[in-house]
Amino acid sequence: MTAITLDRPAPVARRVSPAGWFRHTMTLAWRSLVQIRHNPMELMDLSVQPIMFLLLFTYVFGGAIAGSTGDYLQFALPGLIAQNMLFATLSTGVGLNSDITKGVFDRLRSLPIARSAPLTGRIVADTLKQVWAFGLFLGLGLVLGFRVHTGVAGVLGALALLLTFALAMSWISVLIGVIASEPEKVQIFAFSILMPITFTSNAFVETSTMPTWLQKWVDVNPVSHIADAVRGLLTGGPVAGHATISLIWALALAVVFAPLAVRAFKNRV
C-alpha cells in the first residue's frame, strides 16, 4: 500500500489566481451538471415539466382562451418560456441550501479554493440549464406549430434577455437559499411568491380580459414585460419598451438583492 500522506511541496500560494478561480468555478459547475445524471427528479424538473406545461396549456386551455390551439400556442409559448425561466432560478437557492445544510459547503470552504467559486460554479451550471430549457421549449413549440417570425437574431436576443433577468433573479434565490433552514422551505417559499406573480401577468392570457383593478398590476408586473419582450423578439411586434422595462427591473432586483444575498451568505458561512 502506498503512503496516504506525503509532505506537500513546500511553497504555498497566498491567494487564488484568476485562472484558479475560473478552474474552480468550472469544476463546481461540472459537479452541478453531473448531479443531474444521478438525480431523476432534477431531470423531471428540467425536461418533463416544461413539456407537460406546454402540452397542457396548448391543448387544454388553448381552445377556450384563444379559440384555437395554434393561435394560443403562438401567444402563450413566450409566456411559458418566461414563467419557466423564473421558476428555474429556484434551483440555485435549493442547491445552495442543500450544500449548506448537508455540510458539503463546509468541505468546499475548507479547501484552498476561491471563496466565491461554490456560488459562481452553481450559477454557471444553472445558466446552462436555462439555455437547455429555452431550447426545449422552442424546439417542442416548433414541432407543435409555433412559428418564429423574426430570425436567429430575435431568438438569441430573447435568450439573452431571459438569461439576464434570470441572473438578476438568482440573487433572490441565493438569499432565500442562504436563510432557509432546509431545501424544501426554499421551494415552498419561492413557489408561493412566483406562482401568483407569473399568473397575474399577460404570460398566458390577454390583459384586456381581466378586471380593471387587476389590469393595473398586470401592466407593471415585470413578468408581463418579459413575456411581451420575448413575444416581440420571437413573433414580431414592439420590443424596445418592454425589453427596457424588463432590464430596469433586472437591474433593480440585482441592486437590492445582491448586497443582501452577499451579506447573508457571509454571515451564514
Binding site: 453531473v34 448531479q35 448537508k102 455540510g103 458539503v104 459547503f105 468541505r107
Partner: peptide, 8 residues
C-alpha cells in the same frame, strides 16, 4: 455529518 455530495 458526512459531507459528501449524495448525487455524485
Amino acid at each position: 455529518y458526512a459531507a459528501v455530495d449524495e448525487a455524485l
